[in-house]
Design a protein around this nucleic acid. Structure first.
Lengths: 209, 209
DNA sequence: GTCTATATACCGATAGAC
DNA sequence: GTCTATCGGTATATAGAC
């Protein structure tokens, strides 16, 4: 279980560069980098092992990216962008707050599954550097807007109001976000069933009726 | 927001050792070490900064502990021990599965709050070293036993059975565990109110009735 | 664009004086 | 028990040949 992933022949092509372009694919690099960050932790991942996994050398990697932090930046931006567009789409709906909230919940589960490694990385960021702090700031902004939606749904009468909106939305997204810890696509539970199960547990609870 | 915590005058007393014993307090060391691990990440925390925060030197710290990993080991053991004793206490109850499960949920929230930094650290461990792998193994064992309890409660008819026990308990503990990300004791919501709110959302859901 | 070699800094850990 | 000094190793990042 040492986790030796084979090098990714698709991201870089070594040699004299006589093969067809492109000799390097940023998306593929990012994918492998993010997978490595998630396995070993961002801080614990060195440029050397990253280059090794990418099937290239440290210097070659530095030629293409400014460093580890640029990879982190791009990865976090991708995850945040997708999540923010879920909020935006829900905001454009001509529906009550409860329906808009449910659409955000389902959308978040879908993004989480579709962008699993990227969102996983996002959820582990603590704010040690400027890049991380900016990601934390955008996450907080997202949480804030969800909380406003919960508040509106409570005012509407469709969500129970004995808990404050902040606590409610934190518990809600705590449950949703935890999905990255165990869900792997391709298992018995498919993406839509997962979204159904999650939203149903959140709204109706676990007690038998 | 660089987060410069002042050195802990209580864990070590510098100088010629002419003060009253003990000149060093393992629990205090552990507390500060764990707080630092949680702030900056375990891997990203060096022995040097640890010693600095403890108000002592690298060598002095090494005199008392074998290294960073011993501190991690002790911290994880504390968190796991508390969680396991919650399961044990619930198992000894003369009650149905649903009541035993509810007691585990409440107990877990209480431990989580009482041992907040230790449980936080536990939940972030990924299994990179032997110490971490052993902690992950114990966590999985805990999850497995919770899942069995959920299964029993479903068989009893007190929990909805349209979701499998594994998914249910993962969502359940996903919500509970996420509390470490935002709850800080001493706020408007006290520990028991938090436990009530969490268990109530889990069992009854958020929809207004 | 990729290579080897290297600069500079910090890491965990230890030796030996006091 | 704590200190200074230092070991060997690895980190990020760059210079310069090809």
């Amino acid at each position: 279980m040492t986790g030796n992933t084979p090098p990714a022949a698709t991201a870089f092509r070594r040699g004299n560069g006589r093969t067809d372009r492109p000799p390097y694919d940023l998306d593929a690099v990012l994918e492998i980098a993010v997978a490595t960050f998630n396995e070993r932790g961002y801080e614990a991942t060195s440029i050397s092992v990253l280059a090794e996994r990418l099937g290239t050398s440290k210097s070659a990697l530095y030629y293409h990216v400014s460093g580890k932090e640029e990879l982190l930046q791009r990865a976090l931006d991708r995850a945040l962008g997708e999540l923010e567009s879920v909020l935006e789409a829900a905001g454009a709906l001509d529906a009550g707050a409860a329906d808009r909230l449910e659409s955000v919940l389902r959308g978040a589960v879908r993004v989480l599954v579709a962008e699993l490694p990227f969102v996983t990385l996002l959820l582990r960021v603590r704010g040690n550097t400027d890049v991380e702090r900016d990601a934390v700031r955008r996450r907080r902004e997202f949480d804030h807007r969800v909380s406003q939606l919960v508040h509106a749904a409570q005012a509407e009468g469709s969500l129970r109001a004995d808990l404050d909106a902040g606590t409610t939305s934190r518990l809600l997204f705590g449950m949703i976000n935890s999905i990255v810890e165990w869900y792997r696509p391709g298992g018995a539970l498919d993406d839509e069933a997962l979204a159904d199960a999650t939203v149903s547990v959140a709204l109706d609870g676990l007690r038998a009726r």
